[in-house]
């Protein structure tokens, strides 16, 4: 649970959004003006948490909750 909060906090920081705005069902694309911002966020989060994902691992991820879960599962 602590890890999830940490992941969300980092995500909020990188997207310049309040943590409260990052509900699990929120579509990631609705949070940004450009898809490039999402790419930057995901890569920067991998640097931050020292993990690396493949395309397969994030295929189908469209919401905040799904992305948080991908990170949380890897960091568990």
């Amino acid at each position: 649970m602590e890890r999830v909060a940490e992941i969300k906090a980092k995500m909020a920081e990188l997207l310049s959004q309040p943590v409260d705005a990052l509900g699990d069902d929120i579509e990631l694309t609705s949070l940004v003006n450009s898809s490039f911002v999402l790419v930057e966020m995901i890569i920067e989060m991998q640097e931050e948490f020292d993990v690396r994902f493949t395309q397969q691992e994030v295929t189908g991820v469209t919401t905040v909750g799904q992305l948080v879960k991908v990170f949380a599962d890897r960091l568990a």
Binding site: S34, S35, F36, L38, V39, I42, I43, Q46, R52, F53, T54, Q55, E57, V58, T59
Partner: peptide, 13 residues
């Protein structure tokens, strides 16, 4: 470039 990401999926690393 925006259209690339929409067509090819987001680069993840």
């Amino acid at each position: 470039q925006d259209q690339y990401i929409m067509a090819a999926g987001m680069p993840v690393n």
